Computed example of a mutant assay.
Amino acid sequence: MAKAKPKKHTAAEIAAKAKAATQNVGGGKAGLADRKGGSVGHAKFKCHICAQTAPDLKTMQIHHDAKHPKLPWEPEKCADMHAQVGGVTVQGVAVRGSKKK
């Protein structure tokens, strides 16, 4: 009698499982708001000149140097979007809708 061979998982399968466990893909209006990251999205800072968002001050400085080179860089004027909404940016992590087979 032959033994059954153990199933080997590919790197793609493992990566897909990890992605499914941490990604918001729920449907409907609630899922759409959730995927956008709540009311502010995942970006933390907003440019006081053009309202462009960035996840951190270093990225905001790069944006400022590229788009507003004639104006002085003033990081204290960048709005902290997370503080404005109480620190909640993603409502439900790992929310997954129906799985299509």
Rank of each mutant, 00 (worst) to 15 (best):
36 K>Q: 14
94 A>R: 09
1 M>P: 04
39 S>H: 10
96 R>E: 10
32 L>A: 15
10 T>D: 05
14 I>F: 00
54 A>I: 10
99 K>G: 14
49 I>F: 07
16 A>F: 09
36 K>C: 11
97 G>A: 10
70 K>M: 06
77 K>P: 02
51 A>E: 13
5 K>A: 00
73 W>L: 09
3 K>S: 06
15 A>W: 03
1 M>H: 03
81 M>V: 01
52 Q>T: 14
91 Q>D: 11
73 W>R: 07
1 M>C: 08
6 P>H: 00
60 M>R: 01
18 A>W: 05
65 D>K: 13
17 K>D: 11
63 H>R: 01
70 K>A: 10
36 K>N: 14
57 L>Y: 01
57 L>D: 03
27 G>R: 15
82 H>Q: 08
8 K>E: 00
2 A>P: 14
97 G>H: 07
46 K>F: 02
27 G>P: 10
93 V>M: 14
61 Q>M: 09
85 V>A: 07
33 A>C: 12
13 E>D: 05
12 A>L: 13
72 P>A: 02
87 G>T: 07
75 P>E: 02
49 I>R: 05
18 A>I: 13
2 A>Y: 00
42 H>L: 13
8 K>L: 00
66 A>W: 07
20 A>V: 14
61 Q>G: 03
77 K>W: 02
24 N>Q: 15
82 H>R: 12
60 M>Y: 00
55 P>K: 02
88 V>H: 08
85 V>K: 07
16 A>H: 11
54 A>H: 12
37 G>E: 03
62 I>C: 11
55 P>G: 02
15 A>C: 12
78 C>D: 08
11 A>M: 10
97 G>Y: 05
70 K>W: 03
49 I>L: 12
31 G>V: 05
52 Q>E: 14
14 I>M: 06
91 Q>G: 12
100 K>Y: 06
60 M>K: 01
51 A>N: 14
55 P>C: 01
1 M>W: 02
73 W>P: 01
32 L>Y: 10
12 A>N: 10
41 G>C: 07
41 G>K: 01
71 L>V: 11
63 H>T: 04
64 H>V: 00
90 V>N: 04
40 V>P: 00
86 G>N: 05
35 R>E: 06
100 K>R: 09
90 V>S: 04
32 L>K: 12
58 K>Y: 11
24 N>L: 09
67 K>P: 02
76 E>S: 14
36 K>W: 06
27 G>Q: 15
32 L>T: 12
61 Q>D: 09
72 P>D: 05
22 T>K: 13
101 K>L: 11
85 V>R: 05
52 Q>I: 09
69 P>I: 06
52 Q>D: 07
34 D>E: 10
100 K>Q: 08
8 K>D: 00
80 D>Y: 05
78 C>P: 03
46 K>S: 15
1 M>A: 08
74 E>D: 13
56 D>H: 06
4 A>I: 02
57 L>M: 15
53 T>P: 05
41 G>M: 04
84 Q>S: 13
48 H>F: 12
47 C>G: 08
17 K>Q: 14
80 D>W: 03
71 L>Q: 15
41 G>W: 00
42 H>Q: 12
69 P>H: 07
95 V>H: 07
33 A>P: 03
24 N>G: 14
